[in-house]
Design a protein around this nucleic acid. Structure first.
Lengths: 141, 141
DNA sequence: CTTTAAAACGGATTCGTTTCGATTTACATT
DNA sequence: AATGTAAATCGAAACGAATCCGTTTTAAAG
């Protein structure tokens, strides 16, 4: 079972309906292995559904996030989404600011200092490294 | 020399002018030891300068960021600013999502895995922990 | 086939942020 | 103290991402 089929399964078992649009959004995520914007999703869907509404895009994106199908971050005041790959364990990302591609970072730094924050309730954390990947790194020498 | 005077010094040595508004923005930052929004800055300055423009707020905030007087982050699509405290060494923050207060985290996790990203050029990183501080933590028991 | 709750439409609205021409101001120089 | 000028500010408009809402369509259960 591939990622898309799997995600659709998750939708169904959580009482959400199957729709062509959801399938298309998911397969777009699957084909782009990187963080994409809501606008990119909208423009992709526009080809097949010229009247697609932003409401549809955002509602579905947030549904996906809620179901852990998609993960979300933000950069320069813009939200970014990608297929969640945390089924292979909690981890973080290196994000290429040129092409948006990501690499898994095989470590979560949270373990190292939870002791430093006694009395605080930790709800979430954000750990991301930005730069340019091998392909995008300028050959400036 | 306090933080505000110091920041004004930095402005001057970089060829920026001294203005009342800049001084007020800086002393507001100094009095609020936390991340604040551009709107909060605007509302603070409004008391003394009823016609203060957002242009002035943002231009100065970004000038401060450029001069490392202020540091910037974003949460929920909104930009947040606070006086830069990295003169006491590179570090990261726990950020209380209720009151905006921050706590230093005495460790930078970057050291631990730079080896994992061969070929990539690392330009920046983001490491933040979110939750509620002692004062804001709900006494839910 | 019928029903109905979920999903989508589409267009308006909100809100943070950015922009820009005109005006004012800080401050170095005379 | 007066002048010149580059920097700073104003005021208001524009922008773009995100959200909202009444109406219509649709998936899929009965």
């Amino acid at each position: 079972m591939n990622e898309v089929e799997n995600a659709i399964e998750v939708l169904k078992t959580n009482g959400y309906k199957f729709t062509d649009k959801r399938e298309h959004i998911l397969s777009y995520f699957n084909q782009e292995n990187r963080y994409i914007t809501a606008k990119e999703v909208q423009q992709f869907l526009k080809v097949k559904y010229p009247n697609i509404s932003y409401d549809t895009i955002y509602r579905n994106l947030y549904t996906f996030v809620e179901l852990d199908i998609v993960e979300e971050t933000e950069l320069n005041g813009e939200k970014l989404f990608r297929l969640n790959c945390s089924h292979s364990g909690h981890h973080h990302h290196f994000i290429c600011t040129a092409c948006g591609k990501t690499k898994k970072i095989e470590m979560c730094p949270m373990n190292f200092f939870e002791g430093q924050l006694n009395g605080c309730q930790i709800n979430s954390h954000r750990f991301e490294i930005f730069g340019t990947c091998e392909q995008c790194a300028l050959p400036v020498k």
